[in-house]
Amino acid sequence: MDEVPEARAIPDPTVEEMVRTVEPGIEVERAVPVERGFCSVYRVAVEGGPTRTLYLKASPDGERWGIPDEARLQAVLHDRTSIPVPEVLGVVDAHGDLPAPFYLMSALPGEELPYEHVGRFDDDALRRLARETGAYLGELHSVPAVDSFGHVRHDGPGLAGDRPSGHPDTLTVGNPRESWSDYLRAYADREFDRHADSRFSDLTPDLTRWFEAGVDDLAGPFDPVLGRNDHGLHNFLLDPESGSITGMIDWGYTLAVPASFDVEFAVYVLGGAYLAGLSDVQDRRSLVREAMLSGYRASAPDRTDAVATPDPLYEMLAMVRLMNDFGSLDLPEGTEEAAADRIREDARELLAGDRYG
């Protein structure tokens, strides 16, 4: 796995030049760094008529880190769906002097909440979030963009400040796999390698055997679709009054996968099972699944059958990924052991149960 760099600070004059590379003639009033993972992200207030807010996202070290691909994908979703994604104003794939690749995008309204806050929503708020997520996933899965499995990449000319095309044929799959089981095995191997170094490593052998015993018994269809994959609450913007989704951000980890794989990851993350070890948090996967399917059915009725039946193997992989990232959770002081114990118990129940019962 590639070593993840830290976000680098970009001097104000350089930020201004980057913005003007995309939108000549506007003046930067101020630029404020924003913590969004390891990429360098700046909230930029610009003049040129009424002051407006934009976001600049740049590589931390000159490597791609999916930035050009994310920009093209967001352009497709902005043009082809009602999914609330930032409008991409322009992309610079390479530059001799500026920290490329980078792109400039519009700001969206709404409030960003921590990943763990999903356990604090009341049932009505969580049901609304899940229903709207399901509807947007139905739209995402309906975009005709991929025909094999793997990481979504862009397939088109390099850009030097222009807006990317919003046509799905600008997207492709890097290192594509035609076989879903082959791709899934490679995906699982990477996650199990990480799992063997986690605090849950005592479970790694049993989880690996359980996966191998079931991967060939998966029921299709295995049609590749654009999969959001990164469903953490921190990647949503919400209206603080209504709780409705006003933005879905950070698309750099989009995969081409079967729709059911993507939906199971969303159900696990938004259902909050990994927080159920806390005394005041419930496992609400059933509530989330029902609401998500309701929304999915509304936007993609012809696809709903493909996601209606959950597969425990996909749920297990979502659980493994959460265990691998457990150290990143911001838990109340003194609750880490209880949360970890509940996740471990959940995994053992899955291993002991009827796989399709």
Rank of each mutant, 00 (worst) to 15 (best):
E3N: 15
P5T: 13
A7P: 12
R8K: 12
R8V: 10
P13E: 14
V15A: 13
V15S: 11
E16K: 10
M18C: 14
V22N: 02
V22D: 02
E23M: 11
E23I: 12
P24Y: 07
I26L: 08
V28W: 04
E29I: 15
V32I: 13
G37C: 00
C39V: 14
S40I: 07
Y42S: 05
T51K: 15
L54V: 13
D69R: 10
E70Q: 15
E70A: 12
L73E: 04
Q74W: 03
I83M: 03
V85D: 02
L89H: 05
G90A: 11
D93P: 02
D97A: 15
S106Q: 14
P109R: 05
E112I: 04
F121T: 04
D123Q: 09
A125I: 08
R131E: 12
T133E: 12
Y136V: 03
G138L: 00
P144C: 15
S148V: 00
V152S: 12
G158K: 13
R163P: 13
D169N: 14
D169Y: 10
V173R: 01
P176K: 08
S179K: 00
S179N: 09
S181W: 01
Y183N: 04
Y183W: 08
A186N: 02
D189T: 09
D189S: 09
F192M: 02
H195N: 13
H195I: 11
F200K: 01
S201K: 13
D202F: 10
D206M: 05
D206P: 01
T208A: 07
R209C: 06
F211I: 01
V215S: 02
V225L: 13
G232M: 05
L233H: 09
D239R: 00
S242H: 07
S244L: 15
I245N: 06
T246M: 01
W251L: 09
A256L: 03
V257M: 14
D262R: 01
V263I: 00
E264M: 12
F265P: 00
A273D: 08
A273I: 14
L278D: 11
S279Y: 04
Q282C: 14
R285Q: 04
E290D: 15
M292N: 14
M292S: 02
L293V: 01
Y296S: 07
R297N: 05
A298E: 15
R303V: 06
T304G: 09
A308Y: 04
A308I: 00
E315C: 15
L317S: 01
L317K: 10
R321W: 05
S328W: 12
S328K: 15
D330C: 12
D330M: 14
L331M: 03
E333Y: 00
T335L: 13
T335H: 02
D341N: 08
I343M: 06
A347N: 07
R348L: 09
E349R: 07
L351C: 01
G353D: 13
Y356S: 12
